[in-house]
Simulated scan of single mutants.
Amino acid sequence: MADARTYTIIYVVLLALGTGKFLFFMDASPLTYQMALAGTFVLAVAKTLLISGYYMHLLEEPRSVTYMMVTALFMVLLLTIAAGYSIQ
């Protein structure tokens, strides 16, 4: 199990990533909307990996649990894509 120092560092990194997502869409940002959106997705994935790895303790679990979680995520993405396709 990680110590308080590790959790504090992860918290500060998550705070910085959240601030970065906000700064992408500021009026003074040189990024286009598509670039800001892509950057937001990348930062969201990084935040998700940090949260699931450290706060949900998936790094300490057996690999089978991690594979099960990745499979569940893949299935949710497939369902989301199918729902989006059926709406159009």
Rank of each mutant, 00 (worst) to 15 (best):
E61C: 00
Y85N: 08
V70R: 01
V65E: 08
A4S: 15
T8F: 13
R63L: 15
V42H: 08
T66P: 00
A28R: 07
L43V: 01
S64D: 11
K47I: 05
T32F: 01
M69C: 02
Y33E: 02
M75N: 07
T80S: 11
S64Q: 13
M68I: 12
I10C: 08
M35I: 04
E61Q: 11
I87H: 03
F25T: 07
D3V: 01
H57C: 10
A46I: 08
F22I: 14
Y11C: 09
Q88P: 07
Y67F: 11
Y33S: 13
L43D: 09
V76F: 06
R5K: 11
F22G: 13
G53A: 06
D27L: 04
L14G: 04
S64P: 00
S52V: 13
T80Y: 12
L37I: 03
M26P: 02
D3C: 11
M75V: 09
I81P: 00
T40F: 15
M56Y: 13
D27C: 10
A16R: 07
F25M: 04
T80G: 14
L73V: 10
L43K: 00
Y55S: 08
G84K: 05
M56G: 01
L50C: 02
A2S: 14
M68W: 13
L31Q: 00
L73R: 11
Y55N: 06
G20A: 07
G84F: 12
F74I: 06
A44P: 01
A46C: 04
A28P: 01
M69I: 06
L77M: 09
Y55W: 13
L73E: 09
L50Q: 08
D3H: 13
T8M: 04
L31G: 02
V42G: 00
A2T: 10
M26I: 07
V76Y: 11
A2G: 10
I10H: 04
M56A: 14
L79I: 11
G18Y: 07
F41I: 02
I10T: 03
L23R: 06
L15F: 12
L31W: 15
